[in-house]
Design a protein around this nucleic acid. Sequence first.
DNA 1: AAGTGGACCTGCTAGC
DNA 2: TGCTAGCAGGTCCACT
Length: 271
Amino acid sequence: MPELPEVEVTRLSFAARIEGARVTGVRVGKPLRWPLGCAPEALLAQTVGAVTRRGKYLWLPLDRGGLLMHLGMSGSLAFGDVDPVPGPHDHFDLVTTGGTLRLTDPRRFGAVVWSPSSETGVAAKRLARLGIEPFDPRFDGAHLHAALRRRKVSVKQALLGGEIVVGAGNIYACEALYQAGIDPRTRSDRISRPRADRLAAVIRAVLARAVDVGGSTLRDFRDAHGNAGAFQLEAGVYGRAGTTCQRCGGTIRRIVQGGRASYFCAGCQRR
DNA sequence: AAGTGGACCTGCTAGC
DNA sequence: TGCTAGCAGGTCCACT
């Protein structure tokens, strides 16, 4: 579910409210992707710092280390007054003096892991391979072109991998390639510099626009206030197989690449 | 080393 | 109506 925009929208919806709060309780539900990595009681009485984001991960600093959180495919965070009776998919509660941060994740591909810092331990291991942030000024056409030149996989798979640039998952990779007019099957090393310039620009624009409208809610995404996103309403290709392209009148197709669905317009996206 | 396919887990929907 | 197969926003790992 959550790609960079959903994670960022989530962060923005609770970061200011949890900062400075003190942990008064921890509840752990069913196992998530990775073990917590510390005794839950060890988190008690610590104060939460400023929540940051790296790719699709959130970093919640504490007095001693912090929590690295990932929403997987179906996770969402709520903060504030949560139901005192946790539901079957509520797998982690961080009770604080400012409210409870609750991870709900039916598929349990998400994670909450303690790490001694964001640059060491488990966090370092998870974040090490991530590519550049799309809003980093150093991410531009030259950067993208140079990275794509080293890969032979399709440009769609290269974007999804997250080792070149983080944040564009299946929805936004499809949308960015659509807006750039690039066929998702194009080999990475065949993307010209002008097309890389355009692609870098639209990746940033698509992700920024999605953050502005609260992310995409395909089924269950909510920010920490419980608000749904609206980007899915303005998607050009994602989930629209068989419909007509708004730009050229062609037909939107669905194919599978690397086991993931890709949506694109056969009329205006070229190799 | 880079590329590929399967694994993780649950819920929903389309189709018979 | 009820069952089943297929599909879903993301990573990681083993294997070639």
